[in-house]
Amino acid sequence: MSARYLTRKLATLVVTLYVTVSFNFLLFHVLPGSPIQLLARSGHYDPAARAQLIKLFGLNHPLLAQYFIYLRNMVHGDLGFSYVYRKPVTTVLGGAIGNTLLLVGTATLVTILVGVWLGVMAASRAHSLTDASITVTSLALWSMPDFFTGMILIFICGVWTHVLPISGLVTPGLVTGTWGHIVDVGRHLILPALTLTFVNAAEFSLISRNTLVDVMVEDYMLTARAKGLQRRTIVWRHALRNAMLPIVTATALYVGMILGGAIQVETVFSWPGMGLLIYNSVVQRDYPVLEGCFLLFAIAVIATNFISDLLYQVLDPRVRRT
């Protein structure tokens, strides 16, 4: 990877982040009826908090000055003050971000493994019954809203059979050691993670299948067979390595999707992460928190895009030196 490429990508990253932050400002601070403007006048805050708010966002200054104050706050990591939790937004987010990472991380790991594996299964038996059933199942799963999948799982595993906890991060009132705590969280994690996996693994299996089917007919696949390599080696080393490129690109868009899914799933399972925070802040009109969550989600997606761009460079020698 050339230094020039890296510099260009970094510059794009910085510009995109800057635009995102500005977009956020526009959305929450400038547009008519935007919450910060309303808040300053509303009765949600006691006079002291309101004065603090006005000072923090410089609401008594002209718009341009407000914009610079906003940017300065961003640079200092100051995202405002939640009036529901009565804490700085950063503190509120800090408490939720780990839980979302745990949920989304687990789901992503399983999604990629299961999705790609299913895609390989379907593609290596292209146009067979296995292929057709995997594809149709994936399409059907893909068509399910995450929250609905979650509700079905709640019925099956929670309401009817009681095999797994359906709500929250831990069992209330359960006192155990560290190990017991991990097991408890793990059990609570299963259903929400599974829900996210269903929809997204479906998407992954469709993408992997289609790219693999395209790759399978390439000349070098025939070469690999002619070399007398084992079927497994051919599919995993030669086909998948080439099919990785579109899959990596898809992953970047996937992050946006899974975060959208996380909002629904955390709501359904009361998983105390950022998704639930978004839901609650919508219900309670806690705009500073909503703004902070959105900004963080946007940054996460932008960062993933950046990483996937770099990864693409590493994976595809053809673009590496250009």
Binding site: F23, I278, V282
Partner: peptide, 19 residues
């Protein structure tokens, strides 16, 4: 590209909550 990158559902939620 900028809009492609923004997480769609969160954006929709924010817009709906605001407007």
């Amino acid at each position: 590209d900028f809009f492609l990158v923004l997480p769609t559902l969160p954006l929709i939620i924010v817009l709906a909550a605001l407007f």
